[in-house]
Design a protein around this nucleic acid. Structure first.
Lengths: 231, 231
DNA sequence: GTTTCAAGAGTTGTGTACATCTAGGGGAGG
DNA sequence: CCTCCCCTAGATGTACACAACTCTTGAAAC
């Protein structure tokens, strides 16, 4: 069809551009490149992505519907703040949904997926050996979540799980500096090892329950740390 | 502040208008006033609500994100079709979420809510006495769902439940003409009576489980009927 | 008669100017 | 010095004109 020498994307649908911008902004928010409270300028974003304000506004509206930004007329578009107590309900729901994934038509991961998880564990060990890095932890966590999400066969459940994950992922990164990073790396590695064992057995039900357990414990550790910080 | 003689809404925020239009269009789609496959004209809607295409487009984009319409460049905005087999995953998820509502910080309904449920049962009896009406059934069902939803204390769970409900509510109305309307009214009344009993006992956990049971049986009846129609 | 292609109508997507709103600063009055 | 009010800067919301895209229709070529 087209004679593009590099790849296969010369048409570039409007939707593709929109999704691309959305993904970039979402990642920036979740990785705290756009910290809570930051004001996003529609014009600056339009300039960065070489479009007008119109498509940028569509993306920002979508981010607002998902709770990542707050658009206020006459004021600006503000990255929403994340507070542990406000996200407690989201966490409780995530626990239950994690346990559900094994019951609703789970997807058996292929050999490549297992290798990717093994690679994540290896990367975790490399990180643990050197200087511990918050950002690296967040990236590993997000990559592992992607593997878990791929095992959720029920499409609406997968979409919901991802949405809730993006809502809560920031709080981890925010509290990480106040926590024992060594302990978090260790717990995260343990989770991946246990889940990998269940995956090898094809026991997705157990994957869901393991996931539930570790989300819960991670939440409890944050609660304890946040409680200590407030005293 | 203002001297409006009638009510208290002269400012009319942009968001309020947007939410209002969204609710109207969503109800029209869910009540099949806009049947599946119908093409919505942005200009006509803009004219009807006395605004330009811009705010209309925002609403349509939101409806698309929730799966109720499909926007195609150069073609139009089409009301999505609903097929029972495609919605099976949504139904399975709704079952599990219904059972969850009792476990995640449920809200005890007040006396007024109990009276409203009693009124719904009375309305159901009135309908059953006269000529059975599909639309009346759909409205009763939606009103009852609103009461159930109000008992869901976990806010993200409530939002998700409502979203999934709007995605599946149309299929019931669509299949209703091929089903035993008398039986559906009877089953629906039975569900309300049972749930009312649990509500009176303050047993929201049982409300969730009852809800789960009846959603499941309703789904099974539709499956049987749809299967019979295909033969 | 069949096929193909081009032109047109009609739709959504984008760009841009302007309307509307909010927050903050500065000056007059007390 | 404090308080209040107005005004301006800068943000989002809206309206409208135009670009990009799809489908249909009809006529011309074979």
């Amino acid at each position: 069809m087209s004679a593009s020498p590099t790849g296969t994307e010369p048409p570039v649908t409007a939707r593709e551009r929109s999704d691309r911008i959305y993904g970039i902004l979402r990642d920036r928010i979740c990785m705290l490149a756009y910290p809570p409270g930051m004001r996003l300028s529609e014009e600056e974003l339009a300039e960065e992505f070489n479009v007008s304000r119109t498509p940028v506004r569509r993306v920002l509206t979508r981010l607002e519907n998902e709770g990542l930004v707050s658009i206020v007329h006459g004021v600006g578009t503000l990255v929403t703040d994340v507070e542990l107590d406000e996200l407690a309900q989201v966490y409780h729901l995530r626990l239950e949904l994690a346990a559900l994934m094994g019951r609703l038509s789970p997807v058996q991961p292929d050999a490549a997926a297992i290798e990717r998880i093994e690679a994540l564990i290896a990367r975790c060990d490399e990180q643990s050996a050197g200087e511990l890095d918050h950002m690296a932890f967040a990236r590993l966590n997000m990559a592992f979540f992607a593997e878990i999400s791929a095992m959720i066969g029920n499409q609406p459940l997968r979409e919901i799980s991802e949405r809730l994950y993006y809502q809560t992922s920031r709080i981890v990164l925010k509290l990480l500096p106040t926590m024992n990073l060594q302990e978090e790396f260790s717990a995260f590695r343990q989770e991946m090892v246990e889940i990998l064992a269940a995956v090898r057995l094809g026991d997705i039900v157990s994957v869901g329950h393991l996931r539930r357990v570790h989300i819960s414990m991670s939440f409890q550790r944050m609660l304890r740390r946040a409680g200590a910080a407030y005293r």
